[in-house]
């Protein structure tokens, strides 16, 4: 619990920065939209928010996963935390982050709908607006989870293994990312389980790598 609190305290600043930046870009788009009309977003895309918050949060969480492994773990062990305690806390933190980011994406959609309606854009859309459903929410959460776990696993690979080994196993370690991007369609029942299974496998692999990892001296 103390480790989880520590992670939450440490990462909330980075998360705030990230979402602040996203909000800034989004606000800019919305403002231009109300001034210049819907063509700003381009044809074929009906949601500006979908553009801004489609891939970026997932890849951001991917890098956060790498940080959790490469900087968080050694510092925690040096402060008397076991690798197991840390991995469990990092796992919970990954789930919490994924859900949180999923919720924020929903909030963005809700705001966008308000702006669209207020400016009569909704009716002018050539493509139908992707309505925020429980399914899109679930899809987002799964995608984030898969990305962050992958980041953690790859970070550990590079921390623990010789660099060439780490590079060699990276394509395999990336599987959850591919699965998370293409298969996390909640409407297709199998997809959900596939992503979950792959993400869990990555989590287990990460724990196996972490549980006996030596905390090396930086010089040696």
């Amino acid at each position: 619990m103390t480790v989880l609190k520590h992670l939450a305290r440490g990462y909330r600043v980075v998360y705030a920065w990230f979402w602040g930046l996203v909000a800034l870009v989004f606000t800019g788009l919305m403002v231009s939209l109300t001034i210049f009309g819907p063509w700003v977003v381009g044809t074929g895309e009906s949601s500006a928010w979908g553009l801004v918050a489609g891939q970026a949060p997932a890849w951001f969480l991917f890098t956060m996963g790498i940080m959790l492994a490469t900087t968080g773990l050694p510092v925690a062990v040096a402060n008397g935390v076991t690798r197991r305690e840390y991995t469990v806390a990092a796992g919970i933190f990954t789930v919490v982050s994924s859900v949180l980011f999923g919720l924020l994406i929903l909030v963005g959609h809700a705001l966008e709908i308000l702006v669209y309606r207020a400016n009569g854009i909704m009716a002018a859309l050539t493509e139908p607006y992707p309505a925020p459903t429980l399914a899109t929410f679930g899809r987002g959460v799964l995608q984030h989870l898969a990305f962050m776990v992958t980041g953690y696993l790859i970070g550990l690979c590079f921390y623990r293994l010789r660099v060439w080994w780490a590079i060699a196993v990276t394509p395999v370690a990336m599987i959850p990312v591919f699965a998370g991007n293409d298969q996390a369609d909640v409407t297709r029942f199998g997809g959900v389980w596939l992503v979950l299974a792959v993400a869990c496998a990555a989590g287990v692999a990460a724990y196996l790598l972490a549980r006996s990892v030596p905390i090396r001296s930086k010089k040696a």
Partner: peptide, 19 residues
Amino acid sequence: ENAAVMRQICLIRESGDVY
């Protein structure tokens, strides 16, 4: 990996185990 023991130990190495 013994939580009860590890939390009672502190090692400061010359290289420093900080971020």
